[in-house]
Amino acid sequence: METKMLDAHIPLPLAERLDALAIDLAQPRDEIVTEAITAWIDQEERRRITALRTIAAANTIVLIEHHRAIDWADSL
């Protein structure tokens, strides 16, 4: 797989946590960061799809006159 080098400035406490986790898991930092970014992007894409579906559903709501709803309820 092709890769692209990205530079990011992150807060020192976060960098220290990343270093500690990499040591504990015996995994390179770039693998941990790649996994974290992948999970974040997947989550954001799911949220976007959910929002778009919600908007689409709201646009398809059918309105009925109040008296028709009352008549229907009375018929039950």
Rank of each mutant, 00 (worst) to 15 (best):
H67F: 02
S75T: 06
T50S: 14
R68P: 00
D30H: 11
V33E: 01
P13A: 03
V33T: 04
E31G: 06
R29T: 05
T34Q: 06
L76Q: 11
A8M: 11
I32H: 03
A26E: 11
M5L: 12
A69G: 14
A73T: 09
L63C: 05
A56L: 07
T3Q: 07
T50N: 12
H67S: 10
I61R: 11
D42F: 05
A22H: 07
M5I: 13
L76A: 03
P13G: 02
M5R: 11
Q43Y: 15
I37Y: 00
I32N: 00
T38H: 01
A26D: 14
A15V: 01
R68A: 06
L76E: 06
I64Y: 12
D30S: 11
D74E: 14
I37C: 07
T34H: 05
T54W: 02
A39S: 06
V33G: 02
W72I: 15
A20N: 10
P11Y: 04
M1D: 11
A58M: 14
A51K: 11
A22P: 02
R53A: 13
A36T: 06
K4Y: 09
T54P: 00
V33L: 09
T54Q: 07
I41E: 05
P11I: 07
A39C: 02
T50G: 08
L21V: 10
T60V: 01
I23D: 10
V62C: 02
A73N: 06
T34A: 15
A73G: 04
R46E: 13
R46T: 10
A57H: 03
T50D: 15
A51H: 05
Q27G: 05
H9R: 15
R53W: 05
A69P: 03
I49K: 14
D30Y: 09
S75K: 01
A20F: 01
T3C: 02
A69E: 06
A51S: 12
I70V: 14
V62E: 14
T60K: 10
D19P: 03
L14D: 14
A58L: 14
D19W: 00
R29D: 02
